[in-house]
Design a protein around this nucleic acid. Structure first.
Lengths: 255, 255
DNA sequence: TTTGTCGGTTTGTCCGACAATGAGGTTTAG
DNA sequence: CTAAACCTCATTGTCGGACAAACCGACAAA
């Protein structure tokens, strides 16, 4: 008697009503039926339309909120929204942290992304972008003169470069990494005295290359800068392969 | 009488009780008090502990669900979980699509990320990784011989390389982009007959370089491969700067 | 060992009530 | 005429309670 053939059945997916509400609304938002800025129909309208209780609708809506597909602008009425970096980047950072991502892992990715950002910025930066970078340079110089940490300004400069690159995919991919690298910069700067002046030099070259539309130079200087960052981390005796910690809130976040 | 000084007060952030439930539970999960795999306390327990109604607890829990911080393993009881790629990557893809990301934007980032993945894979790939890649090569060869599209296999190969890189940050950053590039490959392959054989050649070289621990060669071949992808796209007369569309579900997703 | 049954617990859904909040319209005062 | 004050009503937030459905674990029977 041979063994009976194993019958592999997928687990039955029975969806709660609140999940069905969520999915239906999600679909309407994604397919454009409900557009960004539109008010979501009222809970009672949705309850009637879906043939469920208002509580069930509310539960479905709560799921949409966490996805950034609805949000409150002013007042209490929810409006449809498009999830963006502010929804996704902190979540991604947090997921990386929970999975114990290391400085080395983050740095490896930054080492290819930041130079790309610099190169793209050389082609795409607007006058406003350049002005913001110039301002950041001034502030960095001032912070250094006054013996203050340039860590926040460094992160801000990187963010400004990335914004100037005008590439959605890049912006979304790099921001979580930037968020997680900020505490590293903060930790390193007091331990490595030459870090501050070196970063100002690098920023200045990067800024000038971007201003002049010189993508190659911007790329090269950004590469040097990110490589320096790692060297500084090592010089500071900080652990490349230990899990990074989450930035304290308000630290490096944009917006 | 001079005008009274304008008093700029930030808008008061009054959080609904369900938001407070959500935040508190989120905090407990992030700080490790509630650990992955643990059952979430029952709704009634939480209601008692937080001093709110059970409905309010449920609404807070719904927010956690969308974040992947709780999920259902088997049965109805929720367990604590760590959000991973399967939570974040489709969301990120979708956000990019909603923001009308273009092939060019995606390709620019892939052009730096995929070669990085290949280089890292050359150091980090396990025997299982290599076996999976080898299997994919065989299947690709077969698909080409039978006149079938290798698009899915191409995406799978890229995914295998990225997994072999053993870098959390890279995995999370690149997957959304891979998801969105899959329809491009699918569209291109029937229009450019040499695309199939060329990708098999590239994959073979990449695979061998990774197997032999030759990071530079892996990097270079992956660069060529991704550059080829764009050339193919252009040859096919597909629009670099039009927004990409979402892959049909089941297409390119892992897991 | 496997299947069936039972009891208890938990989750899902519904209903209804009331308070708080915000938006829009109207009235009043300068 | 305009801005501020006031009012009304609709909507959201929260609560309590009820009941059905689903699940789990324990135990007995085959």
């Amino acid at each position: 008697m041979s063994e009976p053939q194993k019958l592999h059945l997928p687990r039955l997916q029975v969806h709660a009503a609140y999940d069905l509400v969520w999915r239906e609304l999600e679909k309407r938002i994604v397919d454009g039926t409900l557009r960004a800025g539109d008010r979501l129909p009222t809970e009672m309208e949705l309850a009637e339309r879906f043939g469920v209780n208002r509580s069930t609708v509310r539960e479905g809506i709560r799921r949409l909120e966490s996805e950034g597909l609805v949000r409150r602008a002013a007042g209490r009425r929810l409006v449809v929204s498009l999830p963006g970096r502010s929804d996704l980047a902190p979540r991604t950072s947090r997921a990386l942290m929970l999975h114990q991502v290391t400085f080395r892992e983050l740095w490896q990715v930054a080492m290819v992304m930041e130079p790309l950002a610099a190169r793209l910025a050389a082609d795409a930066a607007t006058a406003d972008d350049l002005a913001a970078m110039a301002r950041n340079l001034e502030e960095t110089e001032q912070a250094l003169r006054q013996g203050r940490s340039p860590a926040r300004l460094d992160t801000e400069f990187q963010n400004l470069v990335a914004q100037s690159a005008k590439n959605h995919a890049l912006a979304l991919s790099r921001e979580p990494i930037g968020l997680l690298l900020y505490p590293a910069m903060e930790a390193l700067v007091p331990l490595v005295p030459q870090a501050g002046p070196r970063l100002l030099v690098a920023h200045t070259h990067i800024y000038r290359a971007i201003r002049d539309g010189d993508g190659d130079t911007a790329f090269r200087w950004m590469e040097k800068h990110v490589a320096d960052f790692r060297r500084g981390y090592e010089l500071a005796g900080l652990p490349l392969d230990a899990p990074v910690r989450m930035p304290k809130s308000g630290g490096a976040s944009e917006e």
